[in-house]
Amino acid sequence: MTRALEIENLTKTYRNGTEALKGIDLNVEAGEFFGLLGPNGAGKSTAIGIVMSLVNKSAGTVRVFGVDTDEDVAGAKRYLGLVPQEFNFNQFEGVRQILDQQAGFYGLPRRLARQRSEHYLKKLELWDKRDTMSRQLSGGMKRRLMIARAMVHEPKLLILDEPTAGVDIEIRRSTWALMQEFNEAGTTVILTTHYLEEAESLCKRIAIINHGRIVEDTDTKDLLSKLQIETFVFDLASPMESVPDLGAYHTRLADPMMLEVDVSKGESLNEIFSALSDQNIQVLSMRNKANRLEELFVQMVQNGDGESSENATGPDGARRGGHA
C-alpha cells in the first residue's frame, strides 16, 4: 500500500544559519491518525511548511502518496489539505466566498465548488454564517472555517497544525470528533498539537521532533508503555491538611480534596487502598492522571536538550525552548 507521506533525510537551513531540520525521516501510512509533537521551534512547522510547499527545503525528499514533490509538485499538492496554526484567510471576504475560491484553486468547477462549500459549511455548522465577513466570526468559528477550507477539495492527507490552540474545551472536543470522522472516512490525518492529551487520545502513532531531529517515532501504546511511573488521582471525601504517609509511595496533595500518588510499573494498587483505609481516608473516586504522554514528552525533550543548543533560536532570531 502506498504511504501517505514519506520524508527522507529532510534538511532545512534558514538564511541566518539556523538548522531547523537536520535530516529527518518520517513515514505516515495511508489512513493513519498521526501525531507530530515537539516543543516550540523544534521544526514541526518547518517540516509541515516544506510538505505544503510553503517553505523551500535545503535537501531531502518528500513524497505524498508516492508523488515526489520535486518531480510533480502540483500532483502532490492535490492530495494535501492544510489547517494552519494562524488564521490566514482574507479577513474581508465572506465565509462562502473563501470556500468557493479555495475549491476553484484546486480546479473544481464552479457548480461542484458551490456544492462542496455548502456541504462543508453545513458540516462545520457555519452555513448560517455563509454571507458573513470572515473577520466577524468568533474564534471558534474561524477555526472551523479553516478546517472547512482545508476539506473543500477533499484531500487524502489532512495536516492540522495545532488546530485547537487557544480554543475552549467544547470547540476542542467537537474538533476532535470532526478529525476522527474525517479519519474514519479514509482521510489520513497528521496532527501537531501542544495538548498531549489530545495526541494520546486521537493518534495511533506519534513522532516527537526536537532540535530538528526525530527523537521518537512509534505507536502511541508502545510509547506510553515506556513510562515507568504513572500518577493516580484520588478524590477525597473530606479535606486533608497534610500529606498522608503511604509508605513507599510518593504522594502529594494537588488540593485539600485531591491526593496524587505516583505508582511504579508493576506495583499493586491494593497496598495504596490498604494504607488509605488504615488511616481512615475515604476515597470517592480514582482516575489516572491524563498527563502520561506529557511526562514522557518532557523526559524525552529534556534528554534531547543535552544535545547542542547552539541552534536554539528560530529563523526570526526568537529564543526557542519552553515545552509543550
Partner: peptide, 17 residues
C-alpha cells in the same frame, strides 16, 4: 495584502501553476 494577511498561502498550497 495577501502576503501580509498570509492568505497568499491559499494559492501556494494549491496545485495552481
Amino acid at each position: 495584502g495577501s502576503k501580509f494577511q498570509r492568505n497568499v498561502e491559499e494559492l501556494l498550497v494549491s496545485p495552481l501553476s
